[in-house]
Computed example of a mutant assay.
Amino acid sequence: MGRGFRAVRGHARRAAAARRGRAGRGRSGDGGPGGRGSRRGPYHRGDLLGGRVVIAAGVWSREVCASLGVRIEMAAGKGYSFSVPAESVPKRLVHPCSAKAVPAPLGKGVPVAGTMEFDRDPDRFRQGRVQALVAAARPYLPGAGWERREQEWMGPRPMTPDGLPLIGPVPGRPRILLATGHNMLDLMPAPAAGRLVAGLLTGEADPGLAARVRPVPIGPAAPGTGRGLSG
């Protein structure tokens, strides 16, 4: 999972950098905002041409949209985890609400996860957060090898102000769709989000559902009245 997040982050940054590098120069087939033609996007084997583009890069979608001159109202809610060897592995997930740390059985080790850290930098790893998880979970796992923990990991959740995802056309650029902001639901809404994105691309989306999660620009005269984006 950690490698996967780094791969998404790296691709998002390359896409944003490539977009910024082309800004103002123009390219054949770009079509301009709302115009005709194909959209061109960077890919690890070269550029790809397509009639529509979907930005689905988690919290790093902010960087891609920023390269288009659009700001996403989305924060990185970072969660931390690690795996610790234990003499007695729990038979089921343990959720001590007061501790804010969740040990769960998995193989010979016990993954421990928790924390919601809001940070402007989605990539910054704070070792102190791991130490806080150790202190919180220690009473619930006697005999665990806390100093032999492995797979320390951090993942930034894409958090939106109203808790709803941002799925729909980027304002002013109807051929570019945004699909991010799933907050703490991780992969659970992926099938429904995929169906909605497919419906938006084919014109068969549920209009009521699409309206609820559609990114709406925040107007300068009335800040905070739209959802998610400002240009």
Rank of each mutant, 00 (worst) to 15 (best):
P223Q: 11
E63Y: 02
S98A: 13
G231I: 11
R45T: 04
A56K: 10
R92C: 01
R22V: 09
L177S: 04
G155W: 06
I72H: 11
M116Y: 03
P220D: 14
L93C: 10
P174W: 02
V70G: 09
P191S: 08
R157N: 02
W60T: 04
G224F: 08
P96K: 08
A101D: 13
F82G: 02
A193L: 09
H44Q: 15
G107V: 06
V170K: 00
E150V: 07
T180P: 00
V134R: 15
F5P: 00
G145T: 01
W60K: 07
G208P: 00
V94I: 08
I176K: 02
Q151D: 15
R13K: 04
R173L: 11
N183V: 03
P189Y: 01
I72F: 04
G143R: 05
V70P: 08
P220H: 11
G10C: 12
M74H: 09
P122N: 07
A17M: 12
G107A: 13
A211E: 13
R138S: 14
A144D: 10
R212Y: 03
V64A: 14
L49I: 00
A193Q: 08
G2V: 05
W153Y: 13
W60L: 13
S81P: 02
A144Q: 13
A222V: 05
F82P: 04
G114C: 06
G21Y: 09
R148M: 05
A16Q: 03
P174N: 15
R14P: 00
P111S: 07
K100Y: 06
G10N: 12
K108L: 13
P105C: 07
G168D: 04
P103N: 09
R25Y: 12
